[in-house]
Design a protein around this nucleic acid. Structure first.
Lengths: 245, 245
DNA sequence: CGTTATATTGATTTAACTCAATTAAAGTGG
DNA sequence: CCACTTTAATTGAGTTAAATCAATATAACG
């Protein structure tokens, strides 16, 4: 049940019952992947579109000499590039961070769905434009923010994304990333991430333990990060398309 | 005449004469923009898709305190996100670096074109997936490469992109970026860019003067950058769709 | 309960930044 | 075409944020 995707798309526009049924039908073929395993490897030929149902994953690229950069996180409700099969081969890999449950959507099914359901189509474009905006924001984050700002920014983003798919409770959300993964996502080293997290805890910006993140004061964290949520486009921007409005 | 776009799309798949005519028809409404001027500002409501015909531009984001990050360069033949109008407002700005000539393509025309011409549609998806791949590669570049590697990588990328649209002659291509713009694109300072360029010149990796870049030994530059061109997907990946094949 | 992965801390180094000045180049109006 | 102004490039000196290297400590796991 791609409830998280449905929740997310409803941050863009209200869906009809039929829309929701159609989205549910996308998640027919489910795959389970263990933590730490590559879901797709560089060089693979993409055949289907992945829809993440449960668990966390990441896109990453690795340089010849081993340096690794995580370029995106996938959380429940996220969808890989909907036209990925146009490319001959993957230029990067996707790995499961936790155990992952995902639906593999055959391209024909997705294309057919988009042919028939313009509101869903629009919502999926929105999803993919938001992902592009996130990728740009990561470029800014790594290029122009300090270590503390980078981590604070990432926490803000993930907290809001998780909240948008119904996975935050109050000021707490699941957060299964290790410090090494945080380092690889922010362009820092694990040692420096450790020191910066300590500083953030001391400043009362975050609580982080047993794979849970608590943000006691979101406004304060946003301020520390120079975080502007506009790039997530979560403000019902497609309200004019809403079903049952 | 969007010849550069046509050249680029033909790096993906061969087009028919009709395809080319259709693409030419996209460039009906042309706008001229002076160097240094914003083409789109943060907060603007995107109404049309921009197709760059001549000149260079950049996407950038600016933090409240003035820090600026360029997140992408546009060169002739580049197209803004083809579904940008789905979003309510721009979360970043686009500025002309040199004088720019661009076509503004109304969404209806673009959608209609895509409805009728599946080969063009595929080629446009390819274009947009390549742009996403470039954005990811920039994240890697800034996150995990040294200053020299970052600049070398950017030079490799832009050289290949310009060559793909017919704008390189031998080992030389136009290169109108200032050192400040290079700094804002690579997450460095202008001073450090200056020193790093000096080092690259001394190493014989590049010649850079009067807004022209010469790469005497592309393989050497690629090696210095840990550059893998696979993310540009320039190897006729859509050969199976080719017209007149 | 031992083993492996993850987190933490200290000491030291370094790549890149900052601040400040100078030089060179590009544009502008008389 | 030349003075003038502005923008861009260059260089030096000193600083710093983050990296590196190395060791423990703690937590998770089979």
């Amino acid at each position: 049940m791609p409830q998280h995707l449905i929740d997310k798309l409803e941050r863009f526009t209200r869906l009809s019952d039929e829309d929701r049924q159609v989205l549910k039908a996308l998640a027919r073929k489910v795959r389970l992947i263990e933590a730490g395993v590559d879901i797709i490897q560089e060089g693979d030929r993409p055949e289907t579109v992945n829809l993440f149902l449960d668990g966390w994953a990441c896109r990453y690229k690795q340089l010849e000499d081993g340096r690794r950069q995580i370029v995106a996180f996938f959380v429940p409700g996220d969808l890989c590039d909907i036209h990925i099969y146009v490319l001959r081969e993957m230029d990067h890999a996707i790995a499961a961070i936790t155990p992952v449950r995902l639906a593999t959507v055959p391209r024909e099914i997705l294309l057919d769905t988009m042919d028939r359901h313009p509101r869903i189509t629009r919502a999926l474009w929105w999803e993919s434009l938001v992902n592009a905006a996130i990728q740009r924001e990561w470029t800014v984050n790594i290029g122009r923010r300090t270590a503390l700002e980078r981590l604070a920014h990432l926490f803000c983003e993930l907290f809001l994304r998780l909240r948008a798919v119904g996975l935050a409770e109050g000021s707490t959300c699941p957060f299964p990333l290790t410090q090494l993964e945080l380092a690889d996502a922010t362009g820092l080293t694990n040692v420096h991430v450790n020191r910066t997290l300590k500083e953030m805890r001391n400043a009362g910006l975050i609580l982080l333990k047993s794979r849970q993140l608590t943000v006691p004061d979101l406004a304060a964290l946003q301020k520390a990060a120079l975080f502007n949520p506009n790039y997530l486009h979560l403000e019902r921007e497609g309200a004019h398309l809403s079903a049952n409005a």
